[in-house]
């Protein structure tokens, strides 16, 4: 559970080294449960450990964004390396989320 951290109405998800179809499912289920339980308005995807992500990861992020959008929530990506930035940019998802190379403020 330490990969997910709720603080107020913010949920930080520390993504694993590889985000693919296999673990995107688990991430999705846990994130949705925590979103419901905690009235989450902001999701921060932390890519610090992430070196691989394919379009399943994009689908997972997009899905969380859609769920949150109706409530006026926001989604952001932090500690994104060059490769992950390329994946996020190619997918077009950067249009709906802010991407930061570092954590923009203290989230803990």
């Amino acid at each position: 559970m330490e990969d997910f951290k709720v603080s107020g109405s913010s949920l930080t998800i520390h993504l694993p080294a590889e985000v693919d179809h296999h673990n995107a499912e688990e991430l999705k289920n846990t994130a949705d449960r925590l979103m419901q339980e905690n009235n989450v308005r902001c999701i921060i995807f932390d890519f610090e450990k992430t070196v691989f992500m394919d379009s399943s990861g994009i689908g997972m992020i997009m899905g969380r964004y859609k769920n949150l959008r109706f409530m006026g929530g926001v989604v952001m990506a932090v500690r994104v390396n060059e490769r992950m930035r390329r994946i996020l940019t190619m997918s077009g998802i950067y249009k709906v989320m802010d991407i930061y190379e570092d954590i923009p403020f203290e989230l803990k």
Partner: peptide
């Protein structure tokens, strides 16, 4: 199932 519809686009890219 939250598929992004980008599988083939990624392969081609």
């Amino acid at each position: 199932c939250e598929r992004a519809g980008m599988g083939f686009s990624f392969m081609e890219a």
